[in-house]
Design a protein around this nucleic acid. Structure first.
Lengths: 258, 258
DNA sequence: TTTTCTCCGATGGTATACCATCTTTCGCGG
DNA sequence: CCGCGAAAGATGGTATACCATCGGAGAAAA
């Protein structure tokens, strides 16, 4: 019997053959085989964290739901140890909330928390843009340019979710172009935390021209190496985003309290 | 026999009585007793993380040293499980570096990384100050004022390490006064990451007047609710700090390569 | 019927055992 | 003497077992 984990991650039969109740004595090490067969260099815990993160961000696990170690372990077919570790990873990212001697729950972010996070994200991204003006390589600029072009040309013919991810990659690329790793990491953390709110907003408030214009303005400032203009362009872009997110959340909470 | 952990954390005899080799069957739960006796609400892993964090930041564990789960577990007298978790916590804070299938090592922050982190810290603290202008309560302002007064009056008669921690609390208090929890948390993370570099710099470049003047300027801006002035004052203060840190690190690396 | 208390099940925390991998060292052949 | 390979030790990754705690269900008392 092939474990659900194997199925989920597309690991072939030769790997992770698990007979329920047989213990783990003769089961090959996942990581080891993964590495040997060049399948995955992540530890089980990281893979599980990725899986749970996606489930949370996509809404399969809703805010407030409890995340039980044993249940998830049984569902995936691994022991509790890597599940625990995955949950800790997600808690550090702010996606789940640990409670002493209780099940962790999927973090429920109210409006004020989301607003706070947006505020920080804006500051980080403005700094990213400013630094990118000095440090971005021509390749990185081209990458940003390609993303913008693609969005302009395929906005209406692409799945909204895909387009959303492309949009995200634009912002991630700016953070990367800053050349400041600590900044890019932290920026990425906040982007992930806001993923769900951004996603909900993005699929509702689709506005090709606005997005493309904003991105173009940012790109122009980066090309010109004008730090102040880049900050302003980012600020303008994200203030619109913040407004959209707020309106979506208000709408969502209003629906819930009906 | 009292375990070293108990000794280390000042936990009295009734708690965490551990007979080496006796297993854990009849040993009371640390957390439980801790809570019952109002001793500590932290889990073992968190306590260990705190201990290791201090050891790293104070220089007992030097950058580049390996952090072996088994050794630490044996030294403290607990199992590897909470040690693992503690190490993960520290890795998320950037204090230790995880390596696949290798011992984690204490993060060695070269100049460029520290510079990057300072850059982010400055941005976060400028935002904190700006927000604090709007959101700080009179109590919070008074707290900041008290800290500044204390530093002015006791700078030379206080242990440099204590004075350093007081200085840190000034900056933490500003972040808290922003009213933005996500911001305060992230700011705290960067402050911790830079603890060692800041500490080394602080004990070398003691300059009462400069620090007090800077803090006073920041405080005045906060009182006036002048966001721009607050940002500038913070920026000025931290640019001096950055310069000091850089010079200390240059000096340190020069000494090492002798 | 309501309230309180007790007990048990669910769940997270910790300890221990085992496995895969990597590193290092030692031995053998050139 | 040198280089290569195999075996053993060190170390992180995972599985499993046990314990303390907490909350709710059910019983007992008001």
């Amino acid at each position: 019997m092939k474990s659900r984990l194997a199925t989920y991650f597309g690991i072939p039969n030769l790997n992770v053959l698990k007979i329920p109740g047989s213990g783990q004595q003769h089961v090959p090490c996942h990581v080891g085989l993964c590495r040997k067969y060049r399948m995955s260099k992540e530890s089980l815990a990281e893979q599980i964290a990725n899986r749970l993160r996606r489930d949370i961000l996509r809404g399969k696990l809703l805010p407030g739901m409890s995340v039980k170690e044993r249940d998830i372990a049984a569902e995936i077919g691994v022991s509790r140890t890597p599940i625990r570790e995955a949950i800790r990873i997600l808690s550090k990212e702010g996606l789940v909330e640990l409670r002493p001697s209780r099940s962790p729950i999927v973090a429920l972010s109210d409006m004020s928390e989301v607003s706070d996070q947006i505020e920080v994200l804006v500051a980080l991204e403005k700094l990213s843009a400013e630094l990118a003006c000095k440090n971005a390589s021509s390749d990185e600029i081209k990458h940003l340019s390609d993303i913008t072009d693609y969005m302009a040309n395929h906005f209406d013919s692409t799945d909204p979710l895909d387009m959303f991810e492309i949009d995200m990659s634009f912002h991630t690329a700016i953070a990367a172009a800053s050349g400041n790793k600590a900044l890019a990491d932290t920026h990425g953390t906040f982007l992930r935390r806001l993923w769900r709110a951004r996603y909900l907003s993005a699929i509702q408030k689709r506005n090709r021209d606005r997005v493309v214009n904003h991105h173009t303005a940012i790109l122009d400032a980066l090309r010109a190496g004008d730090g102040t203009a880049a900050r302003d362009a980012i600020d303008n872009h994200l203030q619109h985003l913040a407004r959209d997110i707020r309106s979506v959340i208000e709408q969502e909470t209003a629906t819930e309290s009906e």
